[in-house]
Design a protein around this nucleic acid. Structure first.
Lengths: 107, 107
DNA sequence: GCGTAGTACTACGTCCCGTAGAGGGAGGGA
DNA sequence: TCCCTCCCTCTACGGGACGTAGTACTACGC
């Protein structure tokens, strides 16, 4: 569901239908999905003639980060979970995290 | 559903029912839930007489960390998401992360 | 043998999701 | 003007997960 959108660029309408023609979906299906995503706040839409133009409400990265925070919210002990997470990421990714945190500190 | 368990300690059986007596659930309900959680791999169970003794398969923290990793897996650009995440956590939590990463480095 | 505790199996209502059809309004050509 | 086409909104249906629970089977103790 998200996938269709996720990687796609800026904005569209039923062009989405064309873009995922390989899935051979009814046009209404695409519209329903876009509509539901909008309702849930994942997409934003703007009128364009009689059609709508959809746009991701947040970048994919922001969305993922939000999901991660949401998971984090489920625990009582955030620190423990964070530590656990830090231990779980691969070395390369730990590096990325470290770097991001360092830059953060410098501001 | 998870909540019942989440904070609870080591292991139990239908004692769980007693522990959450405030929710006034049928004993079978509790069992079904425990059973389903077991099926999904969140719990482990061991025979104890004719009863079962349930135990979390992973610590809550580990579970949360896993959820976070799962979210991370949904993106194409893990680094970007990680960076985003690092920026999103509060200062105190950034500190926790930093510390965990540093300790990791030292090993 | 019988009651009780505890289990396994099955069920029902609800909600979300993927999918789609039926119907309504607006623009364009005959 | 009327009809056709496009795109939208509303409604629906099957499937799966979840919270809840009832019924049926089994084993232990008196």
């Amino acid at each position: 569901m998200d996938v269709l959108w996720a990687e796609r660029g800026p904005l569209t309408a039923r062009e989405v239908g064309r873009l995922i023609a390989d899935r051979d979906l009814a046009p209404t299906t695409v519209m329903t999905v876009l509509d539901r995503l909008t309702r849930k706040g994942f997409l934003t839409r703007v009128r364009d003639g009689r059609a709508w133009r959809y746009e991701p409400a947040a970048s994919r990265d922001a969305y993922i980060a939000e999901l991660m925070l949401e998971a984090l919210d489920m625990t009582g002990d955030r620190s423990a979970a964070l530590t656990r997470f830090a231990q779980a990421v691969s070395g390369t990714e730990a590096e990325v995290l470290r770097k991001a945190l360092t830059e953060l500190e410098e501001e």
